[in-house]
Amino acid sequence: MIRTLLWLLAGAVLGGIIHIAVILSLPALSATSAWDQVAAVGTGPGPTVLPAATPNAPNPLRLDPELTYAVCRIDLRLGPASVGGTLPQAFWSVAVYSRAGTVVYSTTNRDGVGTALDLGIFNPAQTRLLAEQKLDVAEGLLIVEAREDDLFVVVRLAPPHPEMRARYEKALGNLKCGTIAT
């Protein structure tokens, strides 16, 4: 009886170890990461306007059909990155994702009054150059520091009505994803 219980206990402990191993290794093993799917939609730095979620196609990124999305892919090894442009006066937000799909930084245009997006993304070495004033950046640039070099930026924009989607997608397509000259 006691022997059986001990075996069960040992099984539970081993199960706990398997559980921890699964949880910790999943981010590295997952085959369906947001990064891969974003890479499949568009090559090049972008901006790539993601196709809208419709009932006719799978929606692995779980996009909100109400919103329009633009993606910029960023490699900080090429230099600090910038995402900028003018957006319509509606709700929009911007999020910087790491390769693993975690959100490094996010913000919105509070109260829908802001229309100018001007984001600069720097890795720690570039941030140091910035602090030493060895990098020349425009005033008012929103500075984000990221620890990884492979990133993607998603700009979400909410058209007030579905009829306005085409115009809002065009505005997203006119954003500029680029590299800040060093």
Binding site: S30, A34, P60, Y97, S106
Partner: peptide, 18 residues
């Protein structure tokens, strides 16, 4: 756990301030 959930879901999660 959240990190594993993000990897498994593979979705564009909303940032905390969004």
């Amino acid at each position: 756990y959240t990190r594993a959930f993000i990897a498994r879901a593979g979705a564009l999660e909303l940032g905390a301030s969004e």
